[in-house]
Amino acid sequence: MPATPRTYAFLGPEGTFTEAALLQVPGALDAVRLPASNVNAALEKVRDGSAYAAMVPIENSVEGGVTATLDAIATGQELRIIREVLVPISFVLAARPGVRLEDVRRVSTHGHAWAQCRMWMEANIPAAEYVPGSSTAAAALGLLAGDCPYDAAICTPLVAREHPGLSVLAENIGDNPGAVTRFILVSRPGMLPARTGADKTTVVVPLPEDRPGALMEILDQFASRGVNLSRIESRPTGQYLGHYFFSIDADGHAREARMADALAGLHRISPATRFLGSYARADQQEIPVPAYTSDAAFSAARSWVQAILAAESFAGENASAASPTA
């Protein structure tokens, strides 16, 4: 009996950069792939068990963190990041056949895509109005509807090629040719991915108290153990004005002594800290670890302290045995 294929959710519809990221996951091509209209919907399919994992965007090299994802994984039923994927980003301007560039008055796309093509738009069709779309693919497919309220869409070359009802008005319209978006594959909590030596750990740390030095205490849990941070962003918790949590990516794996010690320190000062996973870096770049923060150094330090305590205990027992009885 053939094995049932896994089911993955992703920020859809089909043809998005997110689906391109998902297709980099081994086995995803033959899996059941469920497009979702937004990040929360994709993650909910994981939480309710209708999908094994979901692929969602978390960071862009131009625009920074994807706030919808940062907020969605910081709250609700806990999830774990088990993989990250990097996808180079390229955009085209698509329209219905017969539409010319000079005819375009309204353009739809995802907010991050618009931000990455803003200079091209201002240079070529400065009067065009932006119409927000849930994704680049959704904006492009919207052009196929008879009552579409906009004239063109910024989308991936793949979507434009796969739909004969679309024509490309301009290619490579991104303002940053080297733009990359980072995606994460998120599942329910389970076994941590194996330690590779080129790993990343993501946590969400609520600010325990709004006072001078509170953030420094959080950062010191990493710095004092030789753990480098590759990303830190503050996001409002929504509880009240001035209440924030920090979304943090740190270089290393929870199975490393230095990272485990840092996580324990975070939990000590902010018990609501949420561990979101340790997983392999997409760029496979190994992070050098100073000798004094290596696993061997932590092990030697623990043994040294244990030896001190054992010696003190032994001395105390001897002293008790040598004392005269009353």
Rank of each mutant, 00 (worst) to 15 (best):
M1N: 10
D30C: 04
R33F: 02
N40K: 11
I58Q: 08
S61E: 02
S61P: 05
G65H: 03
T69A: 10
D71L: 14
I73S: 08
T75N: 13
E78I: 01
R80V: 08
I81R: 09
R83M: 13
L86E: 12
V87D: 00
L93K: 06
L93D: 09
A94H: 10
R100H: 14
E102M: 04
A113P: 09
W114K: 06
A115Y: 02
M119N: 14
I125M: 12
P132L: 04
G133L: 09
G133K: 09
S134V: 11
A137H: 05
A137R: 03
A138I: 00
A138W: 00
A139S: 15
G142N: 12
L144R: 07
G146E: 15
G146D: 15
I154F: 04
T156C: 05
A160K: 00
R161F: 01
H163F: 13
A179R: 03
V180F: 09
T181W: 01
V186M: 08
A194Q: 14
A198S: 15
T202R: 07
L207M: 15
P212C: 06
A214L: 12
S224G: 05
R225D: 05
N228P: 01
L229P: 05
R231D: 06
T237A: 07
I248S: 05
A250R: 01
R255T: 14
A260L: 04
A264V: 00
T273P: 07
G277F: 11
Q284E: 15
Q284V: 02
V289C: 11
D295V: 05
A296W: 02
R302S: 12
W304E: 13
A311W: 08
G316D: 13
S320K: 12
S323Y: 12
